[in-house]
Design a binder for these strands. Structure first.
Length: 767
DNA sequence: TTAAGATCGC
């Protein structure tokens, strides 16, 4: 962060140097700067213009005055061009051009003849463009230039190319370009041609011209900022290139030190990161441009930082900021906003505050320092609220009110309301709402939703409903978020009826559902095992144009498996396949469990194969389900085979649940030795036995001579802080009946070690 | 002007 802060303080001269105003040049054909013109020449120019106006056009050719002015005064070409313009009409200008062409033939125009004709021709072209029948005039002018070998100036070439294209004669535009002297085919002219070709739907030809410019070394006329503007505007508008091709094109422009304009580049970086999730490519694009010293600005980096921030990739963000510093690209107010926000979201509020304080503290008359705005304040207040630092959040609100142009907003107060709701201080949260009203700030639907959520979490759904009803009376309507919160709350207490009622209420209120509210309902209905209602909601979801997500599919498949509705399960799987959604290990485990219940071990094996083909690995849950199924089918040896398979083939370590299944199975068939040795195995593998483990073992220790083992296990249970439950007590009470035993049971329940004598003639080797 | 940062559903 230090890097970033030093940047915010630095005055940056780089921008001044690249300011377009400082780069602007005088055009080649502009009038010479005033004050250097010899007086005699000036008067020659004035006299020529006066005479041209005075003498009727048909008499120009025979006028001695005109020809002597031309021969004697050596009027420079730009002045002749200026005179042409001042003639004020196309017809006079065109006549003057023809007069000069004749004069050139008869040697009375000798001074810089070619240049004079070119510039005068250009001025005539300028007039022709706004004439009523400009098409014919331009065509005939161009013919004249060709016939009389008048070279076209850059400006004349640009005008002709542009105007022929506007008149629907793009082929004529191309001809003009092709016949140009190679020295006139400069960047400006090529830019116009490329633009014209794009506008006429000839992208292929445009790219050919561009290609010549981009070819490193071979092109004298390199692309500039304008070229990039034309090309990238077209690329964005016409979607003519694929993403990778655009990346390549940016890089080729980059090698000439040219970057796409900031807005365009920012959009492209955003779409790269957002749609394709290719932040690495986005970074390569920016790095490539930086390497070539192409001019870049903060917003393009902000686009990348935003996405990195969302993914909490703080170290990559830091790399970006460091590089910006190296390249003297100043972060702006948004860059700092993104950084502060990301730090807050990852609960590193103190670091966020540090960045913020540096920023505020260093504010002076140096205009380069970034001024904190209300978004920075809101972000920090929210960050503090989210970690429960309410006092500091309130203090920041006070500070905010004293800052210029940092007025507290609804968002500010909503953050505070949220903080008090997280802390369970609902009354204080409501007081904040009163305070905001006093400050003249209206609560909005987010305020409502925050409080409804807080009430659901801390005081139950009924209080939330009552509050919502009150708010509705006050004119504050809920939105889909309000209803989703309440539906979740109803479902979590098993009240699916009310949840469904709320959904209908929402539709009546004219609020349109989104995918999430459907998922909430489907989840509730699946938990309540209401398969028919769930099917109806899925239908509604599809009618509304949404599709199920993997979580919803898994819940539904689970429900239909539970209801033994194989047909529906099949339908869901087909549906998933059509939606190109890949099942995950939860889907497979659900299916494995379904086939296990049916004792269809062949299908179970098939599922395991499918799972591997899909690139998924059986999990501890998969093994647990199958091992349990083999056990309950009485095939303990198959179960044990799979158990051994876990560690060796799949590298999945068995957990307590797996051990319990097997211990239970061995206990049930009376193989206490195996059960006990499994429990020892747990110890070795550092898997903690739980109350179920002990209950299973206690249950099978019902012989009188096994009582010492029982006591030993009881002590072990206490030592490992494994708490007994109701079942434990019931099992033990059955086995410990003598008054002496009952005392021991009492000691055990109180957590004391039970004293006993080791039975000599019967012990398990493992104990 | 465009581009980029803040509050509510799990």
């Amino acid at each position: 962060m230090t890097t970033l802060l030093s940047l915010s303080r630095r005055r940056n001269s780089y921008y001044l140097l690249t300011h377009p105003r400082l780069l602007r040049r005088f055009s080649a054909d502009a009038d010479p700067p005033p004050g250097i013109k010899p007086e005699s020449q000036e008067s020659a120019e004035v006299r020529l213009l006066e005479n041209l106006r005075k003498i009727p056009q048909q008499d120009w050719a025979s006028s001695e005055t005109l020809s002597s002015l031309l021969v004697s005064s050596s009027i420079p070409p730009p002045a002749l061009s200026q005179i042409t313009r001042r003639l004020g009409s196309y017809s006079l200008a065109a006549s003057f051009l023809h007069y000069l062409l004749d004069a050139a033939k008869s040697q009375s125009l000798n001074h810089r003849r070619e240049e004079s004709l070119s510039l005068v021709f250009q001025s005539v072209v300028e007039f022709a463009g706004s004439e009523p029948d400009s098409k014919d005039k331009l065509l005939s002018l161009y013919e004249t230039a060709k016939e009389k070998n008048v070279p076209l100036t850059v400006v004349a070439a640009k005008l002709l190319i542009r105007w022929f294209s506007r008149m629907g004669m793009v082929n004529q535009s191309v001809l003009v370009y092709e016949r140009l002297d190679s020295s006139v085919k400069n960047t400006q002219v090529r830019n116009v041609l490329i633009d014209v070709l794009f506008r006429n739907g000839r992208a292929g030809d445009a790219f050919k011209v561009l290609d010549e410019m981009l070819c490193e070394g071979s092109s004298v006329f390199r692309p500039n900022r304008i070229t990039a503007d034309i090309v990238f505007h077209e690329v964005w508008r016409g979607r003519v290139l694929k993403e990778d091709e655009i990346v390549g094109l940016i890089s080729r422009f980059g090698s000439h030190g040219v970057a796409p304009n900031c807005v365009w580049l920012t959009r492209f970086i955003t779409s790269l990161c957002r749609n394709a999730r290719r932040t690495d490519v986005a970074w390569e694009v920016l790095s490539g441009l930086m390497k070539n010293r192409a001019p870049l600005q903060a917003p393009s980096f902000n686009a990348l930082l935003t996405v990195l921030g969302r993914n909490m990739e703080i170290s990559r963000m830091n790399d970006v900021v460091v590089k910006m510093d190296e390249m003297k690209i100043r972060p702006d107010v948004v860059t700092l906003g993104i950084l502060i926000n990301t730090l807050c979201k990852s609960r590193r509020v103190d670091e966020a505050l540090e960045v913020f304080q540096e920023m505020c503290g260093k504010r002076s008359d140096d205009g380069d320092v970034i001024k904190a705005d209300s978004i920075h304040f809101n972000t920090l207040i929210d960050g503090l609220c989210k970690v429960g630092r309410m006092k500091e959040a309130e203090e920041l609100l006070v500070k905010m009110k004293t800052e210029e142009s940092c007025a507290a907003t609804t968002v500010t107060y909503n953050c505070l309301v949220g903080g008090y709701c997280i802390a369970g201080q609902l009354e204080t949260a409501k007081e904040v709402v009163s305070r905001m009203k006093e400050d003249g700030i209206k609560p909005n639907v987010v305020t409502l939703n925050t409080l409804v959520g807080g009430m659901c979490r801390h005081h139950g759904v009924n209080m939330a409903i009552a509050f919502f009803t009150d708010m509705q009376r006050e004119g504050l309507k809920g939105n889909v978020v309000t209803y989703t919160t309440l539906i979740h709350a109803y479902c979590s207490v098993g009240n699916v009826e009310n949840a469904m009622g709320l959904f209908d209420q929402m539709l009546e209120a004219g609020c349109s559902p989104d995918a999430k509210i459907y998922y909430a309902l489907i989840s509730g209905l699946c938990q309540a095992r209401r398969d028919h209602d769930a099917v109806r909601v899925v239908e509604k979801l599809k009618q509304s144009g949404f599709s199920l997500d993997l979580l919803a599919y898994n819940m539904l498949i689970g429900l239909f498996c539970d209801k033994n509705n194989g047909e529906k399960v099949y339908e869901m799987l087909t549906d998933m396949e059509e939606a190109k959604m890949k099942p995950d290990s939860i889907t497979y485990n659900t299916l494995v469990s379904f086939f296990c219940k049916l004792k269809d071990f062949e299908s179970v094996q098939k599922m395991m194969e499918n799972m591997r083909e899909d690139g998924l690995h059986p999990t501890v849950v998969t093994y647990g389900v199958i091992i349990e199924a083999y056990c309950s089918a009485g095939d303990v040896s198959e179960a044990l085979k799979l158990f051994n398979d876990m560690g060796s083939r799949s590298k999945v370590s068995p957990n307590t649940v797996i051990y319990n299944i097997l211990i239970n199975a061995f206990c049930k068939v009376g193989n206490l030795g195996q059960a006990m040795s499994l429990k020892e195995d747990m110890k070795e593998k550092m898997v903690r036995p739980n109350v179920e483990t002990y209950n299973a073992l206690f249950k099978s220790l019902n012989e009188v001579h096994q009582k010492e083992t029982l006591f030993k296990l009881m002590n072990e249970m206490n030592q490992s802080s494994c708490e007994a439950n109701q079942t434990t007590v019931e099992i033990l009470m059955e086995r410990l009946t003598s008054s002496d035993d009952l005392i021991k049971l009492k000691q055990f329940m109180q957590g004391y070690t039970v004293g006993y004598q080791v039975e000599k003639n019967f012990t398990f080797p493992c104990l």
